[in-house]
């Protein structure tokens, strides 16, 4: 029984050495909280048609200053807001602090008319790859010559 005491003290100390702090700024109407998986889309990757609900930030310190904790913080906040994904996620990390920002969104009609609609059913799993980009239309060229970046 006695050897368990130092272990308990060690566990108590370690759990106190890390913290994750999440904050948000609401941009649109949130939905009902849920426990479904939330997809994470990094900045630069294509975003399916969606409506921004909140700007969210998760900051981990100490033992929580790593990717799993801050991404979990973003996803938990998105679940509380009834969102389906966190998009445009950017991450910064230093020695004892890591932080990530993104937009918690709900799949829906695109507010941008130039975005191609994508069925929400194709992005059900949080680990699913981003939807394919719409087929690029070749730029019209007057003289019929191939573009300079095409293969010979």
């Amino acid at each position: 029984m006695r050897p368990a005491l130092p272990l308990l003290v060690l566990v108590a100390l370690c759990t106190g050495c890390g913290s994750t702090y999440v904050q948000r700024f609401v941009l649109g109407a949130p939905g009902a909280p849920h426990a479904r998986p939330v997809r994470t889309i990094l900045a630069g990757d294509p975003v399916p048609p969606s409506r921004a609900v909140a700007l969210v930030q998760a900051t981990g310190r100490g033992l929580n200053a790593d990717l799993p904790h801050i991404i979990a913080g973003l996803r938990a906040e998105a679940q509380r807001l009834g969102c389906d994904a966190v998009v445009q996620v950017r991450i910064a990390r230093a020695h004892s602090t890591a932080t990530a920002t993104g937009f918690a969104v709900r799949w829906g009609a695109a507010q941008d008319a130039t975005t191609t609609p994508t069925p929400a059913a194709t992005v059900a799993a949080p680990w699913a790859p981003p939807p394919p980009l719409p087929a690029a239309t070749p730029a019209p060229s007057g003289d019929g010559a191939p573009p300079p970046w095409s293969a010979p």
Binding site: Q23, R24, F25, L27, V47, S50, R51, A52, L55, Q57, V87, Q88, F103, V105, A110, Q111, D112, A113, T115
Partner: peptide
């Protein structure tokens, strides 16, 4: 209105804006 991810229709651009803070998103 604070907006992200897309522009509202028929919007006219007035200028570029930047802000940085360590005090929180609000």
């Amino acid at each position: 209105t604070v907006r992200a991810l897309s522009d509202p229709p028929n919007a006219r651009e007035l200028g570029a804006v930047e802000a940085s803070s360590e005090e929180g998103l609000d």
